[in-house]
Simulated scan of single mutants.
Amino acid sequence: MISNVAHIQWCAMEEKSGESLGTVLVAGAANLTIALAKLIAGLIGGSAAMLSEAAHSAADTVTELLLLVSVRRSDKPADRRHPFGHGKAGFFWAMMAAVATLVGGAGFSITHGLHEIGHGEELANLTPSYIVLAVSFVIEGISFAKAFSQLRGEAGRHGVSPLRLVRLTSDTALKAVLFEDAAALAGLLIAGGGLLGSQLTGSALWDGAASVAIGLLLLAVALTLIQSNMSLLIGQAAPQQLETGIRAVLAGQPEVENVVELLTMMIGPGAILVAAKIDFRDEASAAGVERACEEVDRRLRDTFPGVRQVFLDPTPTRRRL
């Protein structure tokens, strides 16, 4: 019997990219709008935290464009030069998006915040900044709600928690939007706290510290996404429980004596390659082995719709003398 958990995990991972594309577009439009508003408010008030938030939103806008490329490129069909498809292109461009967040958002925020702490600049009219922060929070909240709604819907359909799904999913676009929108909401609260602290104390230290905190937050998000995409690019295996389900399908074939070795690899968002060394029963004929391989291939694809490639190698189990 195939593990129900394994089947649920796989179904959660093999969602199509159309819904993720809509999520990316909503997030990109939101970031572009509020980046300009934050920049204007930051220049008017002279706030390092607001300028950091403007850089944050600008970096997120670039990120959404790269994620759009990621979704589009990963959907390209296989060709002669790329027989396994272009799925890993999605992982590459998603990693580039994380790098953009690291360099454009975290780098600017930290350095500008440290400059503000060291030199201190008198803040001017902060009313536009508070207005922009409030409006931005609403817009970012809508974008985050869109992404979380997609996540919760997928999790509900397959009976897993949203947190577990976001950890397991190979949908890098959805994961990036969720992480970045959550960081954006937290960053807005930090920026508002920094502005209020500086306004109440008359010291630019609070504003500069808020800018540094925003940069560190972006740094953590970027490094997390880079690590996740790097693992997928190198050749990350399917989740352990999913491999257990695949092994159960292989071992359940009557002609199979033993599964000598099973290897899996994510070759795109929701796409998996299966390679296995199988010890077939000695009484199985050559024609019987061929039919068994075809049946295993069919059952794997039916049970786990995201299985794209299946390679089976008849290999006898090494027996000790």
Rank of each mutant, 00 (worst) to 15 (best):
G194H: 05
G194E: 04
G194M: 04
G194D: 06
L195K: 04
L195V: 02
L195H: 04
L196G: 00
G197M: 08
G197D: 02
G197K: 03
S198Y: 07
Q199N: 07
Q199V: 04
L200Y: 06
L200G: 00
G202K: 10
G202Q: 08
S203P: 00
A204S: 15
W206N: 01
D207P: 00
G208L: 10
A210M: 06
S211F: 05
A213P: 02
G215Q: 09
G215T: 07
L216T: 04
L217T: 14
A220P: 01
A220K: 06
A222C: 09
A222W: 04
L223R: 12
T224E: 00
L225V: 13
L232F: 12
L232Q: 10
L233M: 14
L233D: 07
G235S: 11
Q236A: 15
A237C: 09
A237R: 09
A238F: 01
P239I: 08
Q240A: 14
Q241V: 15
L242M: 15
G245Q: 04
G245F: 03
G245E: 05
I246G: 03
R247F: 00
A248Q: 15
A248F: 03
A248G: 11
V249C: 08
V249S: 05
L250P: 01
A251P: 00
A251D: 14
A251G: 12
G252E: 12
Q253F: 00
Q253P: 00
P254D: 14
P254F: 12
V256C: 07
E257T: 02
L262S: 12
L263G: 01
L263A: 13
T264I: 03
M265L: 12
M265W: 01
M265C: 13
M266E: 13
G268E: 10
P269C: 11
G270W: 04
A271N: 10
I272V: 15
I272W: 10
V274S: 08
V274A: 10
V274N: 08
A275E: 14
A275M: 09
A276E: 10
A276T: 02
K277H: 13
K277L: 07
K277N: 11
I278M: 12
R281L: 13
E283F: 03
E283C: 02
E283G: 04
E283P: 01
A284L: 11
A284T: 15
A284F: 00
A284N: 01
A284P: 05
A286Y: 07
A286N: 03
A287T: 07
A287H: 02
